[in-house]
Design a protein around this nucleic acid. Structure first.
Lengths: 155, 155
DNA sequence: TCTGATAGTTACCTTAGCTAACTAATAGTA
DNA sequence: TACTATTAGTTAGCTAAGGTAACTATCAGA
């Protein structure tokens, strides 16, 4: 008998296989949706950083570097570009004059939301093609997925 | 009454909201798992290309460029680096002498599998902390997720 | 006030991405 | 057969993204 098959007809999915397939599915899903980003006219690293800035509110450069998993000088230069394009503003900290915060401008926020919408629209198209029962199953599993993803609230 | 709440007690998740939250969850999940890649000692673009080469078998440079959503010259140079590190080999095509195929070396395959394993191990840790019922729910929804992700078989 | 720690920036290097222009090979066709 | 067009990759030359090392400015404590 298969290792983990105890009570169900079909052997229960081992946790490792679940992890592997979940990882792979997430990878493929985002790879597909990434194609929509061309329309934004912004390089991927700038788009990613802008996303953190828009959703995370005014954020210090250090925190942004940690969020993007890059070194401080990388963020420093990236912000120069985003600022030059009028997508973010630097905001001085009142109590600590070392820190620099960045916040999205109206244009930056709009650019990001438009791009996000294109990605979501592509995903909606796929979801709409599903039978309602499968869509419902996905909806029930969503909170669990959000839990392991460390998704704070939504976004 | 809420727009889509027709029969269920809690309003049924609208497809757009499902798409938004699914997108966000996938984004956060991979952002978290990406931290494990430092240990590979390989830059992200090279790691990503190597993944396609390992799982996609010998592949032409053009197909690889399309898979990675970059232009041919980008892949051309990237392969120079992977080759210099002994992670991939160029293979000439017998019938068409224009095309160049690349395949992973033993070292390249091992490096990729080790890295993949680190990512999966991090995910397994999260999944193991879940109550079995939630893990089972995720497992049931997995095939649906794979369907919309365009995940060919597994990987 | 001095000392150490922290936040960013600057300098300088490699890698990653692009377009344009090129070589080499293939396929079709007069 | 030779001429043309197409296709696969590469080279050249640029900007952006990544890193480390070294720097400035500020803050927090002793």
């Amino acid at each position: 008998m298969a290792p983990a098959a105890t009570r169900s007809r079909r052997p229960r999915l081992r946790t490792v296989e679940l992890a592997e397939r979940l990882h792979s599915a997430a990878l493929h899903l985002l790879r597909r949706l990434r194609r929509e980003d061309d329309a934004s006219g912004l390089p991927a690293p700038q788009l990613s950083a802008l996303s953190v800035i828009v959703f995370g509110g005014p954020i210090t450069l250090g925190d942004l570097a940690r969020a993007e998993q890059v070194r401080p000088p990388t963020i420093s230069k990236l912000i120069v570009h985003l600022e030059a394009k009028g997508l973010v503003d630097r905001v001085a900290d009142a109590s600590d004059r070392r820190v620099v915060r960045v916040k999205a401008t109206k244009r930056g926020t709009k650019l990001l939301h438009d791009g996000r919408q294109r990605r979501v629209a592509a995903l909606v198209a796929s979801l709409s093609a599903l039978p309602p029962s499968e869509r419902a199953l996905l909806a029930r599993a969503l909170p669990v997925l959000e839990g392991i993803s460390g998704t704070a609230q939504a976004q």
